[in-house]
Design a protein around this nucleic acid. Structure first.
Lengths: 213, 213, 213, 213
DNA sequence: AATGAATGAGCTTTCATTCAT
DNA sequence: TATGAATGAAAGCTCATTCAT
């Protein structure tokens, strides 16, 4: 509704902050809104209210709603990719098996699987078919993620007695993770993080028996 | 195709058709629209135009847009569940292994994985978090699908030498299929139906060695 | 996605009228508004209110505000050109001199010089430089008007003893009329229609002495 | 030109210049903008950008957009009136006829008829009906201009054999000039300055035969 | 005096819904 | 039933204006 309400009563002080800070405030608010009302119902008014900022600020920093949404998707994918890279590119692990364990741990960490993020993730997946920009960002992120997983699997495969089809296994693993995330999103009480981790580990142990404790 | 016939019947002025026919015309048009422009951008005008019908007819048959969307989701999930049930409830298979093969075949059949349907499917998944109605329909459908898969897996598990954690395997398989569908949707040229079937079969053969030809 | 709550407040009876009627209602309302508040301040809300119609109807019939404005300009120029053509193309006059008198009479008729129309006319002239579409409509209208005036002047010129530079006279006459209109618009109490007619006639009599009664 | 010097002085950061200089920078920028995009589309952002100044400076020097526009109109009318006065009030001419020639020369000088100025002029005329302030400035300027023209015509009229209706001639001449300016603005390639001067001179020679060379 | 980030009123436009035909 | 003109709430966006720096 249009009524001049409570907001104006508060008589907020005008604060000036760096561009990057404002942008992140808005992106985080956007994530919360998408999670709350869905991508198709988010409005700029909601987002700015959620961020505790004025109506005009989003346009000041992102120009168009579309840009804010794209940056939000980028934020989520970048964050995930950075996290995964930290594990897979790290030299701190004594073995590939250990790295694998860390990967599973990360993929189903509270931070990665928190409802807000999962919701954002799948909200954009759902629109990706019809939005080339979303499509590209998702595809690029997926490809990057897959590449480093494949590298790890190649290492592990070399250690196995039997021949492993690394390509197929990578595809399968990636799909499995995506599917588990979807289940966590849709039925969090049925698919817990612990359960998901167990399923993922079972899959991996089936393929790479050597990693079994 | 059936729709063709229906469409061709539709003339220019005031053709009166059974309620069910009109509803299906609109639902199919909605699916095409969602696939084309995304769930968040579909408009009633688009849908009715796509269906070759008048602006007002959607409200006549569905009352609200929301209802049309819900019915569209129901249409897709029901169709899938009916198809899966046909296979899993059938007495025509000589063995559980054969039934499993048919299941995989079905899940990655052209009909099930066609872009339009996948797009609709994930469009609604993306909104499910924030829409209890979508959530429920998706959850119910998933549960039904999982139940019959689990039944089949239980049968197969009994035939194995080693003990199989049927629950975990079912969860894993369901997740794997969902993930593969997602990949087919997002990168169809990278994840083909053939590849997806191979990945699914590999997963199953890992768990149920007895099904290997 | 847009969701709408159903709250039908008691209101005006919904009347359905032909497209052409609605368009004209809106164009006339636009003219009144331009005259009242100026081209740069007209809003769609004002126009529809002035027309006694709903907020959405202008977009229904003109799609964009810009189109409504263009059609308004067209309406005014067409009406003028039609009126002028009626006089200059008419076979009902016994002499060119008579026709000339009728032209002056028309150009400063109450209908042509009414404040609303003059305001619209010059409002668009003022924007024409920066709007190719306005520019073109104005230029086309002017050219059409000039052509038939020139034809008449050519006839009259042939009847004169001295040589008349018809081109220059036409340009001068057209400019004079435009200037008089401008004065009528800006200072209606100083430049009356009667005065303007006298000035125009004096100009013409200076050039074509034969028309003097 | 003077502005150039001013502009080149303007560096990058916090150059402080006299109030009058800043105001003129902004007024000139406003004129260019009006000519480019039209009065109804000028924004403060555009103007300050055109002037190469910061967003906030216009408000600092003019308080409101409306004031800047009014000052712009004043600038244009004052400049014109000063120029015309220089000629008509001058004691340097040996005859009224010579003065008349100089007036025509001035009125269609490059400086007076340059596109930017003509555009500004008619942009404000177009809005004058609905804006008392514009209306008044235009009317005052017109009256001042008319007064001195009338004085000159009175002189010339006294030198004629036949009786001249000075009032009507002045009105006619003023209207003619306005109309010619309008034509120069709307169709500069059809109505050149030279042509306009010829038309004006022809008008004057018709009224004051004595001025003919 | 000068800057530009921040604000929010108000604009155009979209579109689900209603309803006369 | 069926149509599409009409409605108006609500969305995105613009931009004059304010004000901390």
């Amino acid at each position: 509704m249009q009524t001049k309400t409570i907001d104006s009563v508060a008589g907020k002080k005008r604060v000036i902050l760096p561009r990057a800070v404002r942008r992140q405030q808005l992106i985080l608010a956007t994530m919360r809104c998408i999670s709350k009302v869905g991508l198709s119902s988010v409005t700029m008014a909601q987002v700015t209210k959620e961020a505790g900022l004025s109506r005009g600020i989003a346009n000041l920093h992102f120009e168009r709603k579309e840009n804010l949404l794209i940056e939000t998707l980028r934020f989520v994918t970048d964050e995930y990719n950075r996290g995964q890279a930290e594990i897979l590119d790290a030299a701190t692990f004594s073995s590939a098996a250990e790295q694998l364990a860390a990967l599973v741990q990360f993929q189903f960490s509270r931070s990665v699987t928190e409802a807000t993020k999962m919701a954002v993730w799948f909200a954009f997946y759902g629109e990706a078919t019809s939005r080339p920009t979303y499509q590209k960002i998702c595809a690029d992120s997926d490809a990057r993620a897959a590449r480093s997983v494949r590298a790890l699997f190649t290492q592990l495969g070399a250690m196995q007695e039997a021949l492993v089809d690394v390509g197929a296994v990578t595809d399968g693993y990636i799909a499995l993770i995506d599917g588990l995330w979807l289940n966590i999103l849709l039925a969090p009480q049925k698919m817990t993080r612990a359960k998901a981790k167990r399923v993922a580990r079972t899959f991996l142990e089936g393929v790479f028996p050597s990693i079994k404790a």
